[in-house]
Amino acid sequence: MSDKPKFDLGKIITESQIYKSMFRHGYSTSERDRALSVMTNVFFHLHPVKVRKSGARFGFTWCAGGLSFFVFLTLVVSGILLMFYYRPTVEHAYNDIMALREHVPFGIMRELHRWGAHAMIITVWLHMFRVFMTGSYKPPREFNWVIGVILLVLTMLLSFTGYLLPWDQLAMWAITVGSNMARATPFLGHEGPGAALLALGDIQLVHSGSDVRFALLGGRFVGAGALLRFYILHCVAIPTAVVILMSVHFWRIRKDGGISGPL
């Protein structure tokens, strides 16, 4: 113990110009700094500075919504990494998945992604369940509930489109069974009610090569076209929509009065 000024690494860091340029507040337990850390941080800014005590409790939210978001982020990261090793063609897809299992360093990435996808469906369902049970969809949060429902559907579609990518029997037939339902879409599916009415003379307009299922699969059956289309939907189209809707969803939580609570 000497009288020399104590070597305080924390202080050196928090008082450096670099730190200050990044964070507009000190790192202390003072109310002001804590408030600022939320207010001035782009990521924490999703939250208000203060929330209802009841709403902050784990027992109330189960953290299901936040967790869904976190699961989504892990899926984005692991998904991007998987894309480095995966080619969505009928020649390569299966082998590439096999490669993840057999020799790719940390090929466990595939397990993280797959189980994460299952987990996300559970957390999203759970989130909806909680929101319903606390009546949190009630005005003024109706619209955010609707967005939530769409996000739920998109989550399942994300999982569904990803299901095909390993290109094994499990994948192909699950998607075949699932996508066959699109054949029965009224008027737009070639086996849907009313499709037979859409004809020009004796030429059927809606047939297996021109119906909604064909547009989805890029072919009459689950084949090379479907693999590519599902890959694009899975990796680009649906995630983009999810990110946009999530932004609206989070924004609306703030605008609709934060985590719900009794009046």
Partner: peptide, 19 residues
């Protein structure tokens, strides 16, 4: 919930930490 609804707590650290 009503007993606590008017009390507000700081998001950082209380909520952030839970998350």
């Amino acid at each position: 919930e009503q007993t606590e609804t008017n009390e507000k707590v700081l998001v950082f650290p209380y909520l952030i930490f839970i998350e």
